[in-house]
Computed example of a mutant assay.
Amino acid sequence: MHKPIKYVEKAVTLGAKGAWFIFDHFNRIKPNPSPTPKWSDKPLLKSYQKSKPPLGWPRATDSLCPKCVPEIRQQILDGHLPHEVLLNEKVGEIKATIVEQDGKIWMVKECPKHGRFQDLMSIDTEFSKHLEDVFPGRDIRAHNDEKLHNHGSSTVKYGRGSVLTIDLTNRCNMMCDPCFMDANQVGFVHEPQWEEIKQMLDNAITIKPRRQMS
């Protein structure tokens, strides 16, 4: 049997949720205008103005074929394909379905060329559901930086990011499968020059919206 304090906590929680619901409802009748911070050219979004992508499962989504991607990358490096195909065509992209099976969350996808793939996304469906339930909504839409946010169908449309990472080299003494930069697995060494590094830093400053910077 629960201690009396647990019932008090439950009552306070329900009361707080009810009070917030009422306050939020009246606040929408005549809301104050949102401020426009220095790091954005657009005002901050109120909670009810934020959009959300499709959540829950089963649901359809876009994904990549893990075999098409390295093949296309190699064709570009060998000069058989122009790099513009990454901007103008949906190379390597395939449809996928996120489903729950045996208490786990899976992404199931099928490539016409390489067949079926099934990737494990989560071993805890309840925790995954909680993460989606507390998602506050999308951030301000990216704006005034179209030259930087121009990656074809993979273009970043929302959010300010949380950290800027510049890889000075792809040399590494390990070969970790989840490595996002494919260190030691692309067959060539990539090390940006100092002028390129400065350009990356300058570009990061121009992104709108961006994280507050001290």
Rank of each mutant, 00 (worst) to 15 (best):
H190R: 11
E93C: 09
I76G: 11
E93L: 12
E71H: 11
V163P: 00
S162P: 02
V91T: 00
K104C: 06
G92M: 05
H190C: 08
D202P: 01
N173G: 06
R211T: 13
R73N: 12
G115Q: 14
W106R: 10
E146I: 09
K157L: 03
K157A: 05
L81Y: 09
E146W: 10
F117E: 05
T165L: 12
L86Y: 05
F127I: 07
N88Q: 14
A142S: 04
V156H: 03
H149C: 06
E89V: 04
E84W: 05
I76V: 15
T206S: 14
F117P: 08
I98V: 15
V163I: 09
F188L: 15
M175A: 00
D167N: 08
T206P: 05
F117G: 02
K113C: 10
M174Q: 09
K129S: 07
C172W: 00
V163D: 01
I94T: 07
Q118I: 09
G79T: 04
D78V: 02
I98R: 04
V189K: 06
K67M: 10
P82G: 00
R211F: 14
R211W: 13
A96V: 02
L81S: 03
G187T: 08
E191I: 12
S162V: 11
D182R: 07
G115F: 12
K67R: 12
